[in-house]
Amino acid sequence: MLIIGEKLSIIAKRVREAMFSRDKGPIQEIATRQWKEGSGMIDANIGPAEDGGEELMQWMVTTIQEVVPLPVCLDTTNAKALEAGLQVHNNEWGKPLINSTSNDPERFPILELAAKYNSQVIGLTVGKGGLPADAEERAAIAAEIMARAMEYGVPLEDIYLDPLVLQIATSQDHALKVIDAIKMFQEMNDPPMKTVVGLSNISNGCPKALRPILNKYYFIMLMNAGLTAAIADAHEMAGAMQEKKLIDDVLAGKKIDDAQKMAEITKTLDVIMGKTLYAHSYLEM
């Protein structure tokens, strides 16, 4: 499993301030920490970056790769910023990953960049017309993205299909649909298509104490479904791996010794699988 470290995002205040003041310290510190914690790639999310995006992405890529021997996931909707970042990316540490193309015509040119710079690219299975309703719709969009990638000369092994994780607090039924989509995506090619999720969106909007619990257990379920990569907190996912055996035991219907843990896992899996209705206090019920 490839963990793409999620922490260098413009949404985080400390990161945003460092980006704007071009302060390498915090960026390199966070990148190094994520690498040590087990990330195999670092996400650099600079947002839409309409002004000065090109220079910012180049600065991010070089700043990260100065201290960390990893490829970078270039995360922005600004195609020019992507291209600028790809130009300076050090492929010695692995191929870069573009985040992302989709079935929206405005995002098609991203595939040209992937072909031109020999980059991997995430194919987010959404179209222009809103969110996919179920796993089947995600797979149908995936097929279109795959066909288009071939047209543009991007090999399918360089595509990571992303089913789009939605918030469990408002779109509970999608938690299981995303897991189903991960399974379906793999069947769409031989060798299986690679898959990726933006994991922590599952717990977006949930109480703070609940977030790591949902992230971890959802991660294990996705992993069991064959997920290739996750944009996630590497530290949290290392914790998930330690608990994997317990979670797998509960999934297999076994009882585990720690009753409190057993309740936490059972209740969370029930929420993810849609067997109980989500509420912020579901663990207390």
Partner: peptide
């Protein structure tokens, strides 16, 4: 919002 409806019922019963 069904999830908030459930949450409010939980909070009141708590």
């Amino acid at each position: 919002d069904i999830n908030l409806s459930k949450q409010l019922n939980i909070l009141i019963t708590q």
